[in-house]
């Protein structure tokens, strides 16, 4: 766009005072890159999950067994 033909002209007052109030805005927490997991950690977590799963299954089986014997 050639100069001077813009529909909007910037206004810079040559007289008087120009003041800008600096308003403190609230801050957002920053985006979070997720840390990658080490192999050991993944293995530990997997073993833990498996253990909990096994326990849960065993308990379920036990409970069923008890219920059956009660009947």
């Amino acid at each position: 766009m050639p100069e001077g033909k813009s529909p909007l002209r910037e206004v810079l007052p040559k007289q008087g005072q120009l003041s800008v109030e600096d308003v403190a805005t609230m801050v957002l927490c920053k985006p979070k890159l997720l840390p990658l997991k080490s192999v050991t950690l993944e293995k530990l977590e997997k073993m833990q999950r498996d253990a909990q799963e096994t326990v849960r299954q065993q308990e379920m089986a036990q409970r069923e067994h008890q219920q059956q014997s009660q009947q």
Binding site: K32, L33, P35, S38
Partner: peptide, 15 residues
């Protein structure tokens, strides 16, 4: 961001 202890969060977690 920082962790609870005030360190910058890391790119990698170990146990």
């Amino acid at each position: 961001p920082v962790t609870q202890s005030g360190r910058p969060i890391t790119g990698f977690v170990r146990p």
